[in-house]
Nucleic acid binder design. Structure first.
Lengths: 246, 246
DNA sequence: GCAAGTTGTCTATGTTACTAGACAACTCGA
DNA sequence: TCGAGTTGTCTAGTAACATAGACAACTTGC
């Protein structure tokens, strides 16, 4: 057997075989062909599909494992790792910055924007009277297109008129606040509890039924210590790893 | 000398050295570091810059030469090829189609639009009386953003009122005519002469002083054989290669 | 317990990539 | 005409890539 069929796919000159296999597998992970926690096909089958030797597949998998995308288990199979985003809760907590630091691209999507009266809980958080008009923004936040959290933020309607519209354009809370002159803000309070995904979570976060969500309530204040925004966000638990450095 | 410093740049795993060098050079060609017709640095110098052996550079250059991006001349040097766009003159001659076939993206830009009276030459071409009102469109046409030709097209103002405005939006003669109900048209006459770039050519076509231009006069007719548009375009000679298949 | 199927590791072999050096063939300007 | 500088070609050696086969170690389901 001296025939070397190489690859049947398009052949990018100057790219090693194992790298092409690795790219192919990574693409499968990225587009959902191989879901998080699912098992990859066996090395022999992969080798067969790509038309390469099993050792070449092993090299490709080793490269992916090095980057933490998959985890090989002897005797069982190779599994797609759900890379958790390290999510440090600090005084400076910015979704886009945190996601960016993990080498992913952050994006936001406005689900709904509305004006509503503050209920007792939200009013207490923002230090306003219950019934005060608030801007409410429901948004989905993603990392490399993968939904990370879905949540609601409340601002004072007086201080941030039309905030929803601004967020829809800027897709970032930080930029939205900056648009209204809030140069900086810091996290003053964070509360975290776990829950089981309901139908809404499952839809927005693309979670399995029964998957875990982490509910994060937060209050951010401006430089003078006045509350500017409070949020309640539901995170896909399997995709994040919260840390609290003190 | 057994030290192999490899590359000092970022190392994409699984990509061969020669390919990285080729990509680096191609980037230089693309961003203008190495202009069309200019000479690349010598193989030894390139090898030095990338920290690789001269033979590796030769492999990279061979790959670029294969694709027609550069041309090596023994004893002299390696030069950046100005890839000429094959421009077949046929009954169906459409700038955007022709450019698209060469793997480039066609674009058009309206320079000026006006209503003017037909002079004797244009009137004869469009088979109208001298003095007839015509729409005149001056446009620059580009391939992948590189200017290919700058020219003027004349239509009957009666038949195509406001053609300039339509062209400004659609950026295509074909689409402009279609907007006025001309479903198809064909080239009935093409005349081609060469000239030396004047100041205007040099500006619009981004040519050197003294560079060659090809002046193309054409008449297109509709399905009934009636002239619908005539054009005079000045092509950057170094960027096109006209062919007349019979 | 056992068999089937998995990943991990070993040896072996051929091919390709890269480096190294030398020289030929050619161009160009002084 | 000459010499410096260029690309083209050759030989040679080392390292990495890829294939091939065999077996060990382990998991899983029956």
């Amino acid at each position: 057997m001296t025939a070397h069929p190489k690859s049947n796919a398009a052949e990018p000159a100057g790219v090693t075989l194992w790298r092409r296999v690795a790219d192919g597998l990574e693409r499968g992970i990225g587009d959902g062909t191989y879901a998080a926690h699912s098992r990859l096909p066996g090395e022999i089958e992969i080798a067969d599909r790509f038309g390469v030797n099993r050792h070449t597949v092993r090299r490709a998998i080793a490269a992916l494992a090095e980057r933490g995308l998959v985890r090989a288990e002897r005797g069982s199979g190779t599994y797609v790792e759900a890379r958790r985003i390290p999510y440090p809760i600090r005084t400076r907590t910015r979704f886009s910055e945190i996601v960016g630091r993990s080498g992913r691209e952050a994006s936001g999507r406005l689900i709904a924007g509305a004006i509503e009266a503050a209920d007792r809980d939200i009013a207490r958080r923002l230090e306003v009277k219950p019934g005060t008009e608030l801007v409410r923004i429901d948004a989905l936040r993603q990392a490399d297109g993968v939904p990370i959290c879905v949540g609601t933020s409340w601002f004072s309607a007086e201080q941030f008129p039309g905030a929803a519209k601004v967020y829809a354009a800027k897709r970032s809370i930080t930029k939205t606040l900056a648009h209204f002159g809030v140069r900086d803000y810091r996290r003053s309070s964070t509360r975290l509890v776990a829950a089981i995904a309901d139908a809404s979570d499952a839809m927005w976060l693309n979670l399995e039924r029964g998957g875990a969500v982490l509910v994060v309530d937060s209050i951010d204040v401006d430089q003078e210590g006045r509350p500017v925004v409070t949020s309640r966000a539901r995170f896909a638990a399997e995709r994040v790893e919260f840390t609290f450095d003190s």
